[in-house]
Design a protein around this nucleic acid. Structure first.
Lengths: 224, 224
DNA sequence: TTGTATCCTCCGGTATACAAGTCTCGGCGC
DNA sequence: GCGCCGAGACTTGTATACCGGAGGATACAA
């Protein structure tokens, strides 16, 4: 497992959650693999307690499968679940981006543009991981503008199913399109055009759908 | 705190979660009150560990406020949060009820009708608590029909904010209207009429909004 | 009286020990 | 050889002990 840097004043439990989640998304902990509280704790230099807390939380959204008194595993990718999470994302994000068209201040727009500038930078330099982080931030900002941060947090929980597939899909061509989408969405918000914004967002989120078959063909062992 | 019956083979952690959640919704643990892992553990006859797990989960949706190294409290009702949770519910439930119009089988419709019959029964006998339970079940079935159970589970987490207000609002008059709504919604699904179904659902969920001012006036000490 | 420093207590965070369920594997009886 | 049974080596579930930080109470000094 790939260890992250422990943030200052971050509790062990939070650190464990962040680390494990990251490793699941990056497939460092591959679908279908067995995990153990003891092992993870040892690897991260913690005791079982905080690790256990993290696993319990992840099991709530079915991204970790705890079988009581037996074992815990990283579930195989269940495409129904991926689809369900995209359904939810699509609904919420489209509604939020419409709200943004009414609610965004010039300061908000500046934040979005700043984020996009960074995306351009990492795009040119092929930093795929950073790009995904910025992508998440971009969408997070959209929710903040609409004052729906709480929902974003919840949505992210289930989106992890989605993200795991995403991390198999990202290629530089894709990335280029994604950044272009972000630019267009921001532009639509800037000109207060909710109809376009919604349509752009819908298309944007659908980009990931198309790959499904290809990804499944490339990584059959990861799918249920 | 009001203790519940412990289900067979239910883990202590799950039991604690269920109990605490129930007591928050019923206002047995009133908004603003301080709680302590030790006290709760003692009351429920458990150790701190499972109680702690429950509190951590509840704190993720901000229905318990854990202040590290200090104390934990039941937060006052934040109306923005209630609104955010209704926003989310409204979006998801309206979309789901539309899907139901396509996807519901005759068996599904029978389940809904059976649920409604029970609602009628408890309505006549003034069992408010049971009615709320059935209300939740009704909406849960709608999500199941649309194969979106996972989303329902997540949505319920944030709906606690909503439910807590609901438990202050329920009166028999309200209940009557709610059951009527359910009947109409089911009818719309049965005749495959997504437009009506959506509108009915929207109105249904809006019923709770109207009371806001009245509730706030009646229980000012519970609000932020 | 007021300000301040220190101790003391309580809380949540973590580590660890123990309990209990499940599977494996090997021995034993048939 | 085949099948059953039990010990042991895992697993997760729970209880408990300890740690460190935050705040309040108290006592002393200005």
């Amino acid at each position: 497992m790939k260890l992250l840097e422990r943030l200052p004043r971050e509790s062990g439990g939070d650190y464990a959650l962040r680390t494990i989640k990251e490793n699941i998304i990056s497939l460092e902990l591959p679908p279908g693999s067995q995990i153990s509280e003891n092992e993870l704790a040892a690897e991260m230099g913690l005791s079982r307690t905080p690790v256990r807390e993290a696993l319990i939380e992840l099991s709530k959204v079915k991204i970790v499968d705890i079988q009581p008194q037996k074992k815990s595993t990283i579930p195989l990718i269940d495409y129904d679940m991926v689809d369900e999470s995209r359904f939810m994302r699509s609904l919420l994000e489209c509604a939020v981006v419409e709200l943004d068209c009414e609610m965004a201040t010039s300061l908000d727009l500046e934040r979005l543009n700043e984020n996009i500038r960074l995306q351009d930078f990492y795009l040119d330099n092929f930093y795929s991981g950073q790009l995904m982080e910025l992508d998440n931030q971009f969408h997070g900002i959209l929710f903040e503008i609409a004052k729906k941060s709480q929902i974003y947090g919840l949505m992210q929980n289930i989106s992890i199913h989605f993200d795991r597939v995403r991390s198999m899909a990202l290629s530089s061509v894709k990335n280029l399109k994604i950044v272009q989408d972000h630019k267009q969405i921001t532009a639509a918000i800037a000109r207060r055009d909710p109809k376009s914004a919604r349509i752009l967002m819908e298309e944007h989120l659908n980009r990931y759908k198309i790959d499904a078959a290809a990804i499944r063909a490339a990584y059959p062992q990861y799918f249920k």
